[in-house]
Simulated scan of single mutants.
Amino acid sequence: MTRLLSDKVAVVTGGARGLGQAMCEAFSEEGARVIALDMGEMTYNKENVEYMELNVTDSDACQSVYEAIIEKYGKIDVLVNNAGITKDALTRKMTEDQWQAVIDVNLNGVFNLTRHIGPHMAEQGSGSIINISSVVGTYGNIGQANYAATKGAVVSLGKTWAKEFAMKGADVRVNTIAPGYTMTDILKTVPEDLLDKFAKMTMLNRLGQPEEIASVALFLASDMSSYVTGQLISVDGGMRL
C-alpha cells in the first residue's frame, strides 16, 4: 500500500519536540525521510527521522544545512517552518532584546531557510512549504506584540511565496497553519484554571493536541492538497467564532 509521503524528503524546523515532533512522526509514518532541525536535542526516536542541529537565525548555517541535505538526498519535497520562541511582555516593558530575539527566530529564521529551499523546489518543479503561524498572528494578544508581529508576517510570506515559487509553472504550494492553544510542553506549565479558560474559548470546549496540528500538516504536505496553495488554515477548535 502506497503511503501519502512515500519517497518524499521532508524538512521540519523545531523538529526535536512539541508540534515539530508530532509532524516528524506523522510524516515518517507516511513514508517520508524526515530531517528534524533544531538547536535542542531530540526527545524521541523514530524510524526515518534524522536529527541535524541548526540555529535558524544563522544564515550561513542554514545554507550549509540545505546544501548537506541536497548532497545526501538530492531533493527536498516538504519544508515545515515550525521553529519559534516567545519572549512575552507588555509593549511598554518589552526590551529591544526581547523584541529582536523573537523577530530573529520566528521571522528571519523562516526566511533564512526558505530562501534556499523555495527556489530549489521551483527548479525541481514541485514541493510543499508549510509555515506555522498562530491564532495570535491574526487576532493579536496582550503581552505578545513581538510574537504576534512575526506570526502575522509568516502568513503574508506564505501568500507571497505561493506566487513566487510557482511563477514559472512549478507545482510548488505554500500554505500556513494557525494553531490555537495546543497541549505542548509550554502549556503544561500553565496553571490548570487558565487551561480551563482557554478550553472554554473554543467551540469544541477543549484544547488541541499536537497530533491534530500534525494531521493538517500531513494533508498540506501530501498530494491530498494538490490544489491548495496560498491559504491560511486555522486549527483552533473554533476559538474565535
Rank of each mutant, 00 (worst) to 15 (best):
R173G: 01
T202V: 08
G237C: 09
L232E: 00
L79G: 04
T182R: 02
Q63W: 12
V228Y: 03
M203D: 15
A10K: 06
N108F: 04
E96H: 10
A122G: 15
K87S: 10
E67L: 11
C62D: 05
G84I: 02
G109N: 03
A149T: 11
A153F: 07
M1N: 06
T150P: 00
D7M: 02
L195R: 05
K46R: 09
R17M: 15
I142C: 05
S133I: 13
L218R: 05
G125D: 13
I76H: 13
P191C: 09
D97R: 15
Y139Q: 06
M23I: 11
D97F: 12
R33K: 15
A148K: 01
A10F: 11
E50I: 15
D60V: 13
Y139L: 14
I177G: 07
D77G: 10
I129S: 07
E29R: 08
P191I: 01
L194H: 09
L241A: 14
D223E: 13
G230Q: 03
L79F: 08
D236V: 07
D38W: 13
Q231W: 02
K151R: 06
A61W: 04
E164V: 10
S128V: 14
V172L: 10
R17K: 11
V34D: 07
K93S: 12
T150Y: 06
E71C: 07
S128C: 14
I85Y: 07
L204H: 08
A61R: 06
K151M: 00
M239H: 09
T229R: 08
A32I: 04
G230N: 04
N112H: 12
A89P: 04
I142D: 01
N55A: 12
R206F: 01
V228K: 10
D193C: 05
W99H: 00
S128H: 07
D236Q: 02
M203F: 12
F27M: 12
S64V: 03
F198Y: 15
A68N: 15
S128M: 08
L54T: 06
K75L: 12
K151A: 00
R92Y: 14
G15E: 14
Y51K: 11
V105E: 12
P210A: 05
S234L: 12
I85V: 15
G143F: 07
T182Y: 00
D97K: 15
G238D: 13
F27G: 04
S225P: 04
S28F: 10
G238N: 14
V136N: 03
Q209H: 14
Y147V: 05
L37V: 01
N108P: 00
I76C: 11
V105R: 14
I85G: 02
S225R: 11
E47F: 10
S28T: 09
K151D: 02
R173I: 02
